[in-house]
Simulated scan of single mutants.
Amino acid sequence: MIGGNAFSRCSSLAAITIPDGMSTIGDEAFSRCSSLTAITIPDGVTMIGDHAFSGCSSLTAIIIPDGVTTIGNSAFEECDSLTAITIPEGVTTISRSAFYGCSSLTAITIPDGVTTIDVRAFQNCSSLAAIIIPEGVTTIGDGSFHGCSSLAAITIPDGVTTIGDGAFYECTSLAAITIPDSVTTIGWSAFYGCTALTKLILSPAVSIGRKCFYDCTALIAAAADQNMSTVEDLLHYRWHRNVAVIERVNALLCLKGTWDHVENQLSGPDSLKQKRMDGVEAPLRATEAREKIPKVLWRVILEFL
């Protein structure tokens, strides 16, 4: 075993070979070894501790042997020269902040045995362009891909049930995403600021948190059978900050004659309004007729926005 803090802050250490017979790399063992560029981990190691290599800002590559089953919290946090890494088959959880701030990481392989991508696991991996989440994953944790600004493609498998708060916050290159029917909960601000997102497919029964699609300025189409309150909520408060889109939504709704006027209410930049006969603008609210619009019709309306 290499104990906790064994080489922590050895700023001149450039390379090291761990001898055979070691089973554990302890917490913060090589933390802040800012000159460390290469390291060989032997096959006998089964555990990499919390913060084991955090802040190793010169580390460009590392091979994790197949015997490793545990990669601790923040194990490679802010290894901002690390470009690629393969996680071995025995690992079941991508731990909290495991690769947080690995800003040069362009590729990562997640094995089939992983079931959980924990909180902030890949947050601020700003060079990560694509990732495949294996079928066994059930939870995508809070902020797990927050700030992955180059992430253009991601596949969410059928087994996922929860997408956490801020999971894809400000993934500004993400253009399309399909959320499988297995997902029951999408957290607060999960896709906040995904400004390139133009296509979204959702499960009909999914519960969506506050500001889930806030500032998704390009999101002008969706194909989803959802309950009416969810559709209303998304349309008017979360999907768009784009005046042109608001005007098109307003025109469609007015065309269907399904809105009444509500007088004497404050209006804001997101308000849907319609001029009354006397020229006074008032916010709009749903009528009983609007509540009776079948979901399939709303699907058609959404696809034409």
Rank of each mutant, 00 (worst) to 15 (best):
F213M: 01
K273R: 13
T162Q: 06
I18F: 05
F99A: 00
I163R: 12
Q274S: 15
R299N: 07
I48V: 10
V183Q: 09
I132K: 04
V280H: 13
L13F: 05
S23F: 08
P19H: 09
Y214H: 14
E247V: 12
T83E: 14
A190T: 06
A152V: 00
T24R: 06
I85Y: 03
T106G: 02
I16L: 07
I94A: 08
I64A: 04
I179Y: 03
E28R: 15
T86R: 15
S74M: 09
N264Y: 12
G4Q: 11
A129S: 11
E288M: 14
A196Y: 10
V137L: 03
M277I: 14
H146M: 07
G166A: 02
T139V: 14
S104N: 04
S144C: 15
S74W: 14
F30V: 01
V280L: 09
A176G: 06
I39S: 08
I63D: 09
M47S: 11
T106M: 01
C254V: 13
D233F: 09
F304L: 14
D50E: 13
S150L: 04
P157D: 07
K295H: 03
L13S: 05
E281D: 13
A224D: 05
T17M: 12
R290Q: 09
H146Q: 14
V280K: 11
S127I: 00
A52W: 02
E77V: 03
W259N: 08
I186A: 04
S144W: 08
L202N: 01
I201G: 00
L59C: 02
T70V: 15
F304V: 04
C79E: 00
D20Y: 12
C216R: 03
L197V: 07
E89T: 15
G279Y: 06
T161E: 14
K273E: 14
A15G: 13
K256Q: 13
A29M: 00
E170H: 14
G90E: 13
K295W: 01
T17W: 02
I140Q: 02
I117F: 03
T69A: 10
D215W: 14
R96I: 13
F304K: 03
L266K: 11
P134W: 05
T138F: 07
T198V: 08
S57E: 00
T115I: 11
V262K: 11
Q274W: 12
G143I: 08
A223F: 12
T287E: 05
N227G: 01
I132P: 04
I220S: 13
S54H: 07
T161D: 06
